[in-house]
Amino acid sequence: MTDTDNAPLARLSEAGVAVWLDDLSRDRLTTGNLKQLIDERHVVGVTTNPSIFQAAISKSSLYDDDLRQQARQAADADAAVRRLTTDDVRAAADVLAPVARRTGGQDGRVSIEVDPRLAHDTDATTAQARELWATVDRPNVFIKIPATKAGLPAITATIAAGISVNVTLIFSIERHREVMDAYQAGLEQRLEAGESIENIASVASFFVSRVDAEIDKRLETIGTDDALALRGKAAVANARLAYAAYEEVIAAERWKRLEAAGAKRQRPLWASTSTKNPEYSDTMYVDQLVAPDTVNTMPESTLEATADHGRITGDTIRPNYDDARQVLAAIDAAGVDLTDVTQVLEDEGVEKFADSWNDLLQSVTAKLEAAK
């Protein structure tokens, strides 16, 4: 690999965007592929979700020996899935440990999600966050909690317990603000209890491409020339203004007091960054979302596309706030209710992850039965 091959990803990192891989499997771990991506593709973190694990475990034979052992121990599917997923996350955290040490714990992180079926249960989410943190038992892990209304107090409680959190399934700027408030409240509670906050980290995973997919569909239904001209513009505008909200928070006195006590910033993380519409550039949600203190988590296809032909030209967020506001205003004027869009996407996101988790449980149940 030449320096030229790495140039776009190197420029992305230099611009303050942490490159994370949105995928994990035992295949990546056993073949050394994850280590290779760290060494050659500037990858400094890994995210997972129920869909990723469903694909990894159901399609690979590398989990079969573990499943046979668990079948002999009469483990049920839930216990087996937790064992397999936490083992993979622990192993990935070990691979990324040097990155965590080099970055002071800001990067080198691996995310694992609470059971998505608990998304509307605050107490159960909080309890499982603690269980996952203890089971994986690595300091460079993020516990993923969805940004549902029930998830917000769970985020605060989990942070207050000293557990680092990746807040997932954020679609609206308003909810992003509530997430940032929940993070700060958790840090404040921990300080009030006389505990250190220096080793706690968090990211706020703001979803991108799904916003365009839903809004484009509505614009096409409206069908006017003005509406059609707005396709493919909403997601980037929405994300850019989420970053503007982040800048407001870190400039406020409340945050400055926390930062003085050792708090790490809750960086915006751009999630769902593969384009759903083949007519759009396959790197648009990378090229157009560059700013300091951000994370872009990419499936490998987007990572490779960025390495090959990404156009990283510096900060593409902060100079475009006015344009972003104008885009969202035009979308509203065209008749698209952004509040309804983001609520629909949140509901669908929770449902899709729960469906993937149920599919995984069914697949593992079948494998456990076959192994008896």
Rank of each mutant, 00 (worst) to 15 (best):
W270V: 05
A229K: 04
R240K: 14
K276Q: 10
D287N: 14
A235R: 05
R267D: 11
M180L: 15
I173H: 04
G262E: 15
G186K: 01
V290G: 00
E247Q: 14
D216R: 15
S301K: 14
A261D: 12
V167I: 14
V165K: 00
D287Q: 08
Y285H: 05
A251H: 01
F171W: 08
E248K: 06
N277V: 11
E220R: 14
D282E: 11
R254H: 06
G194T: 05
R210E: 13
A263G: 08
S164W: 02
D181W: 03
V165R: 00
V295W: 02
E300H: 07
E198F: 01
T297H: 03
E279R: 10
A227Y: 13
E259P: 07
A229D: 15
R240Q: 10
S196H: 05
M284K: 15
A263D: 07
E300Q: 13
T224I: 03
L303P: 09
A251N: 12
Y243A: 06
A185E: 11
E174C: 00
A227I: 12
E195G: 07
E192R: 12
Y285A: 02
E174Y: 00
F206E: 05
T302I: 07
A193P: 07
V290C: 02
T275P: 06
V249F: 11
N238M: 09
K276P: 09
I222H: 03
R257Q: 15
S272L: 02
S202H: 05
L289V: 03
M298N: 11
E195T: 00
M298R: 04
E247A: 03
G262Y: 13
V286A: 03
S202V: 02
L191H: 08
E195H: 13
T302N: 06
Q184Y: 00
T283W: 11
E248V: 00
V290W: 14
G162V: 11
Y246Q: 01
I200K: 11
S272Q: 03
E174D: 15
S209A: 13
S172F: 06
L303V: 09
V208G: 12
A227C: 10
T302A: 14
S205L: 04
S172G: 13
A263R: 00
R177I: 10
H176D: 03
A201D: 01
A182I: 03
L258Q: 04
I200Y: 00
G162R: 06
R257P: 04
N277S: 10
A245V: 05
P278R: 05
Y246L: 07
A252L: 02
Y243P: 10
R177P: 01
V179C: 07
A271P: 08
A252V: 02
I163V: 13
V208T: 12
S272T: 09
A185V: 10
A251G: 12
M298E: 14
D287M: 02
D216Q: 12
E192L: 13
R257I: 12
N277H: 08
T297M: 09
E220Q: 14
E248F: 01
V167C: 07
K233H: 11
A204L: 03
E259F: 14
K264Q: 13
V211S: 01
A227L: 11
A263L: 07
P268T: 10
S205W: 01
I173K: 01
A213C: 00
N296P: 09
A213F: 02
R267N: 12
N199P: 00
E178L: 12
R218T: 04
M180W: 14
A242R: 02
P299W: 04
S196P: 06
P292D: 10
E259A: 15
M180V: 02
